[in-house]
Design a protein around this nucleic acid. Sequence first.
RNA 1: GCCCGGAUGGCGGAACUGGUAGACGCGCGGGACUCAAAAUCCCGUUCCCUUUAAAGGAGUGUGGGUUCGAUUCCCUCUCCGGGCACCA
Length: 864
Amino acid sequence: MMQENYHAAAVEAEARALWDKLSAARAREDAPGGKYYCLCMLPYPSGRLHMGHVRNYTIGDLITRYQRMKGRNVLQPMGWDAFGLPAENAAIKNGVPPAKWTYDNIAYMRMQLKSLGFAIDWEREVATCHPKYYKWNQWLFLRMLEKGIAYKRTGTVNWDPVDQTVLANEQVIDGRGWRTGAPVEKREIPMYYLKITDYAEELLAALDVLPGWPERVKTMQANWIGKSVGVEISFPHDDGVLKVFTTRADTLMGATYVAVAAEHPLAAKAAARDPKVASFIEECRQGGVTEAELATQEKKGVPTALTVKHPLSGAALPVWVANYVLMGYGEGAVMAVPAHDERDFEFARKYGLPLCAVVRAAEAPVQEPAAMTEAFVSHDGVLCNSGKYDGLGLQAGVDAIAADLEAKGLGQKRVQWRLRDWGVSRQRYWGCPIPIIHCPACGDVPVPDEDLPVVLPEDLAPDGSGNPLAKYQPFVECSCPKCGKPARRETDTMDTFVDSSWYFMRYACRDNDNAMVDQRADYWLPVDQYIGGIEHAILHLLYSRFWTRVMRDMGLLKFDEPFTRLLTQGMVLNHIFLRKTAGGGLTYYSPEEVELKHDADGRVVTAVLKADGQPVQYDGLGTMSKSKNNGVDPQMLVDKYGADTVRLFMMFAAPPELTLEWSESGVEGAQRFLKRLWKAVAEHTAAGPASALDKAAMNAAQQDLRRQLHETVAKVGDDIGRRYTFNTAVAAVMELLNALSRAPGSGALDRALKQEAYETVTLLLAPIVPHVAEALWKGLGRKGSVMQATWPKPDPAALKRDILELVVQVNGKLRGHIRVPAGAAREEIERAALAEASVQPFIQGKSVKKVVLVPGKLVNVVAA
RNA sequence: GCCCGGAUGGCGGAACUGGUAGACGCGCGGGACUCAAAAUCCCGUUCCCUUUAAAGGAGUGUGGGUUCGAUUCCCUCUCCGGGCACCA
């Protein structure tokens, strides 16, 4: 006997007790059904779940439960991306060691995930800060070192000259260190790199065979990898040649100068003789290292006394040092063709450098340099001012010029990648130690496998300056594995992207201390469905694809791509409210502290702080963050409404890929729906068991209702299984419930139909609101857990229609409707459409030119 | 600056392959129930004009294009969001 009203707390406790008893979320390799690996991006243990987590994991749980009901053997694991900067920041602020802070956060967040009812196999839980996990980071790093995939060279970092510390990009605010306010400098330090560029071609080409990935993610990755086919050109000078790479070799005869990066050897050579060049190079050392910062700074340069020889004409071209040339791309030098490149044009105009137009539109004359107001950038035209190349098309020009350069030994066609090798060294404490020992005699010596893992001491507390690991002698001091003499341990740790590049493999076999992966990984992987935020579209996903290939090439795996299907979810936003303080600062108020006043149409008129009744300024929408004080703690909502309501709202509010605006009134709507559903089922079951449904005895209204029921089954299955539009799946079930509650009649046949309908609704909602579905299933008299029930199939007989309603348009405008038999001939439909009373006035006195018929949908009469 | 997205009623969104714009929900208005309120239920709700109603016109960020027909395809611009290699 069901309770009359819905009580979330009791329902949810009972459902979870049942699942625990059945170990319903456990995943076994020997269970029946095809395997299905449903994976959500693992959270950083920041302290509490935020709405983005709830959204992410609700989507994953929905798919997990749906696939289980479809008969698949599903694995849904969970773990913790437990190394990283926030733990060190918290340590600096509170004096708590990062390890304790991290483990406490994990314990709390694990409890939160359990309270949301996610069907996670907790026996596979992984934390990346655990030595048994990161041992394998170190082990694979050493294998990469052996194969030359990992190597050492210098790299550029942000340097805080006051704290004597390397800063993360996030810690650089307007070119200054976040704690000291000191202007940040660039500094070159030795680091380990992984040769992801060796895999550039494959990582790019394989995007074409990832049909389960969103196009936009594949486009972003392709652009990031950035394959350019062009020509490497050598410009001879006194000490050798200056190499540049260009995709526009056709414009070579229009090159009027060359520009090199501040870090280029030629710049250093010029600086030795010219203090102005030296001071410019010094100026370029100021500021951060991000591409956004470099690309938005004002374009500046200085001339040098150096020249290079044009490889074809032999003319002397001046060498400039320019801040817009990046040392990290190509050769760190460019040939400048101001007439046909926007950046070069701007730079040449600024510094009075000459222009020479060498491309013209096919029908147009050569452009006069002085008359040009912008660069002529065209991929269609012919060469001019280029001697023997005049009149050639642009591609023909590239080919001819490349051939001549090659003959002279001054150039060749080649491919250039935008992708750079992955620098993995971090000068930070809370990360996986890089397993290297520096010996004065033997150099950099890998830690022997039998000494792995190199364990990170867990009780150090960083203070913001330098790396505490480097100051901790018990860690640093060691003996050389080769010669046994005193040596120094490497104190850099690995980028946390290393941890997250393969964690999904370890869920399959986290208890194996003898191997990184085993045959259980062969069973579960690759991941069938991966779900996570769009902000990871490039780095994390690209690194995982790379790491997987490295492991494959070592014989550890048999597949190429780690994630067969990918769903990228949008961010969760909320309102921002603030007041300006007397001192000119800003105080942000949580939306929970603010009351909105609406006018009669529902528009927001004013917002006042509940505490004092005084107005606050509304500052629009933004991603939930601590700094803007606009985060909503999901735990409060779970406590207030229950997990099912929060899950339902999350799925109903927007399609998963879209940005989601937070609104608590939407939560109330979701709760209302569950209450209504509960009450309807309780009333239905209160009248006792229903009889079997006699389909042949149904009247027209009952047939219509049953048709809608089975149309809903078809739609929800398609929305969840194929389209991933969970919002429309929920809407369809809401419509069905509306129709059910309007359906008259309480005879035996009506009750039998409603029994079928409520059982079906329960199954359709089970992946989204599993607790309440469990209670309804039991209330409807069904045995066992709804988790183990079978997903419903639409009855084709119920879907059949005899009469179709068609739309009639005149010149594309809706003018009426007609009803025709399902098999009606074209002529019959046209006749009915033209005869329709509401259509007649719009075709009177006109001649019908054409009638467009879309079968089963519409008739459009073209009349003039 | 570069790359990738997005923009539809008062609000979140729907319209799946170019075919009825606004499903579903929120909010709001009206009504029922109630001593009253909350909760619940019922009705209405894109805008404009005329209006008892019926009907008509306009309308999917901007401006253009293709088409019998465009929220959907193409081009232009504006604004917003994500990423830019050391936040995760």
